[in-house]
Computed example of a mutant assay.
Amino acid sequence: MPAPPLDTCATDTQAARLGRTLRLFGLTALLCLLVAAVLTLIPPTAGSFWRNLWFSQWIGLWAAVAVTLLRRLPGLQRLPRRAATALRLAVALPLGYVLGYACAYALLGEPVRVVGLRDYQVAAIVATVLSGGFVTYLAWLRQRLADEAAARLLAQKLAVEAELRMLRAQLEPHMLFNTLANLRSLVDEEPAQARHMIDLLITYLRAALAGSRTDTSTLQAEFAQLAAYLEIMALRLGTRLRYRLELPAALQQARVPPMLLQPLVENALKHGVEPKVGGAELVVSARRDDDGGLLLEVADTGLGLAPGHETEPEAGGYGLAHVRSRLRALYGEGASLQLAPRQPCGTRARVRIPA
């Protein structure tokens, strides 16, 4: 898929920062509520719950503000994550305690009493440190889980691309050997057609080699490769194969994974067109759906799905399973591959790639 515009990336970053800040303040408010409840039950304090809540919320608010501001310091951003977290905690908690008590006393109209620690203030400090440490631990745990999820996603993508290379290694020699066998029979009998097939084979192999060296391709390149492949198959099958490629000009530069449609076309030829007496038609098309997503279809008028597979979502062999796994790894649950019967006969494979 094309890289998003720079302003979109900036908006996403700002939204992510805002989300982290709101989660920090919300979690801090909940922990301060817990701290107030605990302080109310401690014998040395045993103060009013609402008074304890008032002070704890102000301390938590200023501590959260301090953490938020410290996150933006370039010097801290260059430190290792654990060291930066410990330093933010060491600065934010005392600062939050002092400023929180000062604001709470000032708004109550009482003299500010922060220096000269008493038992209830010691308990408040301990509760503040513990709650701050708990917030920090939760933030660290959440970040660690996010990093592990990202690592799993990357590993899945790498595994899928490794499977793609293996699939190419299986498909291309098979297709190449069959084409060379046909060329051998055409060289003496129909040399002009043999030269045409060689040109098509060169086009197909050049496109396949280019696709193996990149993570994405354009629909224009994919359809050019499919055109060469289907023309080769049409020379082999003769009048038994009729095909059409329908690619609107507006979608020619749309980015897709390389060789995404090749297994679907091969599946349609192998299971739909070739076994059918009299042959069939195969249509490959692309269009946008109502949500701006990309819809790619490989439809044929061949034998159709085997009995019992009409409503089976995982119908198809290794090639189709590989397409599904690639879509899931690259686009998540927003992408899909659906296999359905086509009326009055044949099969339709539909790929949806989200916008």
Rank of each mutant, 00 (worst) to 15 (best):
Y97N: 03
A306W: 07
G332Q: 02
H196R: 15
A234L: 05
L138Y: 14
G304S: 15
G116M: 09
L295E: 09
I198G: 13
K276E: 13
L79C: 10
R350T: 09
R118F: 01
S325Y: 07
Q57W: 10
A155E: 15
I42K: 00
L295T: 04
R165I: 05
L219S: 01
Q57R: 09
R213M: 10
A149E: 10
L153Q: 09
I202L: 09
T21Q: 15
A92L: 07
T21F: 07
L69F: 01
N267M: 05
H322G: 06
A66L: 11
P341F: 03
V187N: 08
P313S: 13
A150M: 04
G47I: 00
D300C: 03
R88K: 07
R144C: 11
R324N: 13
G308T: 15
R72Y: 10
A155K: 12
D199S: 07
L261F: 01
Q143L: 07
M1L: 08
A102M: 08
H271I: 11
E172I: 07
T28C: 06
R195G: 14
G346R: 00
R88W: 09
G47A: 00
V126T: 15
S48H: 01
G211R: 06
G19I: 10
L108H: 00
L327N: 01
R240E: 04
R118S: 05
L34W: 01
D147P: 04
N267Q: 13
F177I: 11
V160F: 04
L95A: 13
R288D: 12
A102P: 01
S285Q: 14
G279E: 06
D289C: 12
W140V: 02
E190M: 09
T45Y: 01
P341E: 09
G304E: 02
A83N: 09
G238Y: 14
N178K: 14
L327K: 01
P313E: 04
R242M: 02
A36S: 12
S48Q: 03
